[in-house]
Computed example of a mutant assay.
Amino acid sequence: MIARVKRTLFSLLFCASLAAATTARAGEACAPATIAPSPAATGARVRDYAPVFESCAQGEAIRLVIRRMTIDGEKLLLTVDPRSLETTLERAACWRCAQTSEEEQAETRFLQAVRPPADPARPPALVNAGLIHGKGGGAFITGDLCPSHKPLDHAFIDEVAAQGPGTPLTLAVSGGWIAHHAEDFAWLQEKVRSGALAISWANHSYSHPYVPGLKDAQNYLLRPGVDLDREIFETEKLLIAHGETPSVFFRFPGLVADGALLEKLRERHLVALGADSWLALGPPPRAGSIVLVHPNGNEPGGLAIFSRLLKSGRMPKPFRDITEAP
Results as ranks from 00 to 15, higher is better:
residue 1 M to L: 02
residue 5 V to H: 07
residue 7 R to S: 06
residue 7 R to L: 09
residue 12 L to S: 03
residue 14 F to I: 01
residue 24 A to S: 04
residue 27 G to Q: 05
residue 28 E to I: 08
residue 37 P to D: 03
residue 66 I to C: 04
residue 70 T to L: 03
residue 81 D to K: 02
residue 84 S to M: 10
residue 85 L to A: 08
residue 86 E to T: 11
residue 92 A to Q: 09
residue 93 A to M: 11
residue 93 A to I: 07
residue 96 R to G: 09
residue 99 Q to E: 15
residue 101 S to R: 13
residue 102 E to A: 13
residue 105 Q to W: 05
residue 106 A to W: 12
residue 116 P to I: 06
residue 116 P to Q: 06
residue 118 A to C: 04
residue 121 A to T: 15
residue 129 A to T: 11
residue 130 G to M: 11
residue 132 I to L: 14
residue 132 I to M: 12
residue 136 G to F: 06
residue 140 F to T: 03
residue 144 D to M: 05
residue 146 C to Y: 07
residue 148 S to P: 10
residue 151 P to D: 02
residue 164 G to L: 02
residue 164 G to C: 04
residue 166 G to N: 14
residue 172 A to K: 02
residue 174 S to V: 06
residue 175 G to P: 06
residue 185 F to K: 05
residue 185 F to E: 02
residue 186 A to S: 13
residue 187 W to Y: 15
residue 190 E to K: 15
residue 192 V to N: 04
residue 192 V to Y: 01
residue 193 R to G: 04
residue 201 W to P: 00
residue 201 W to Q: 03
residue 202 A to N: 06
residue 209 P to Y: 01
residue 214 L to W: 15
residue 234 E to R: 13
residue 241 A to S: 14
residue 243 G to S: 07
residue 248 V to E: 00
residue 250 F to L: 12
residue 250 F to E: 02
residue 262 L to T: 13
residue 263 E to G: 12
residue 263 E to L: 14
residue 269 H to E: 08
residue 283 P to K: 14
residue 284 P to F: 01
residue 286 R to H: 15
residue 288 G to I: 07
residue 288 G to T: 10
residue 296 N to I: 02
residue 298 N to V: 13
residue 303 L to D: 01
residue 324 E to C: 08
